[in-house]
């Protein structure tokens, strides 16, 4: 505990400085309790309630009948339509995340190692601005670009290529998702690379390592925790994306988040909607945790 041994206080009547880091229950609890209660009431409580609902039975016309059944989960795992929805969600998310990593790393590296401080600040703002544009606006923009009479087709039309059907295809959804997620990846990777001493790279280079070798043997192992953080963030966000699949993917393209919304708000089948939400959360959790464990094992081997 740092600072708990305060310098010997002068023998005056001033109150002695309070020890830092001691066990001071009351003030800390008083400060943290309102926020804690708020999160418990507005998030954890409703999640528990929804989990309980997912065990209820849905009777058309009556909405929900109290029960203790796994029927909703069984319905999900027994129905090939929903498995396909989950499958699509996972592969679209994995692909988008991978593309973000491949495209984001060079930008982050450029920002940290090569851009001048002024340009770094400006470029970072330019990365964060689209990030905070909102999914609705960004998706609208991609509709403008990818539509049948959109910018992309207009541009290739000038060169003489016939229009391509892009809207309502999985490709369009992946493009939209990558543009949503890329700024998150760049910002996360940038902050990790920032913490890696550039001298390590110079040292590797002076010992004869080529640039790619240095990246692979020096930068990558050190940046791994951050790369993992960025990758998981992008994956989670894309697993739960709503606007891109609905608006760019079209009515016959199904991902999990819109399906949850459809079941809960439109079909009013709460038990099944709740089960879907928990399947989505569980799958995301299992995939991200196993990625975490896998990378950590690798990381340990590297750092030995």
């Amino acid at each position: 505990m740092t600072g708990s041994s305060s310098p010997p206080s002068p023998a005056l009547t001033l109150p002695a400085p309070r020890a830092r880091g001691g066990w001071r229950l009351p003030p800390a609890f008083g400060l943290a309790t309102p926020a804690t209660l708020f999160v418990l009431i507005a998030l954890i409580g409703p999640l528990l309630l929804m989990f309980r609902y997912s065990l209820n039975r849905f009777v058309p016309g009556q909405m929900m009948v109290e029960a203790l059944t796994l029927a909703n989960y069984a319905k999900f795992f027994g129905d090939s339509f929903y498995q396909e929805v989950l499958g699509t969600t996972v592969w679209v998310s994995a692909l988008s995340t991978l593309l973000c990593l491949v495209a984001g790393f060079p930008v982050a590296y450029f920002l940290v190692r090569q851009a001048s401080p002024v340009w770094k600040g400006r470029l970072l703002l330019l990365v964060i601005l689209p990030l905070l544009m909102g999914n609705a606006v960004r998706t609208a923009a991609w509709m403008v670009i990818l539509g049948d009479k959109g910018l992309f087709n207009a541009v290739i039309g000038v060169i003489g290529i016939s229009p391509v059907k892009l809207m309502y295809t999985p490709t369009a959804v992946v493009i939209g998702l990558v543009s949503v997620l890329l700024p998150f990846m760049i910002v996360t990777l940038q902050s990790v690379l920032e913490g890696i001493d550039a001298n390590l790279e110079s040292a590797a280079a002076s010992l004869g390592a080529g640039h790619l070798t240095t990246l692979w043997r020096v930068v990558l192992p050190l940046a791994l925790p951050g790369i993992l953080a960025g990758t998981l963030l992008c994956f989670i966000l894309s697993m739960n994306a709503y606007a891109p699949p609905v608006l760019i993917g079209g009515p016959s393209f199904h991902m999990m988040a819109p399906t949850v919304y459809q079941q809960v708000a439109k079909a009013m089948n709460w038990p099944f909607g709740a089960a879907l939400a928990f399947v989505l959360m569980a799958v995301t959790l299992v995939l991200t945790t196993s990625a975490n464990i896998l990378v950590q094992r690798r990381y340990r081997r590297w750092s030995e």
Partner: peptide, 30 residues
């Protein structure tokens, strides 16, 4: 301050960022 359960409370307070918006929204709606 250091207090018992500090890490747990920190995780809890940051959790609205981790729980997917659509899941948290559906739960709150119900």
């Amino acid at each position: 301050y250091r207090f018992p359960g500090r890490d747990a409370i920190q995780t809890l307070l940051l959790s609205p960022m981790v729980v997917p918006g659509i899941v948290g929204g559906a739960a709150l709606f119900m």
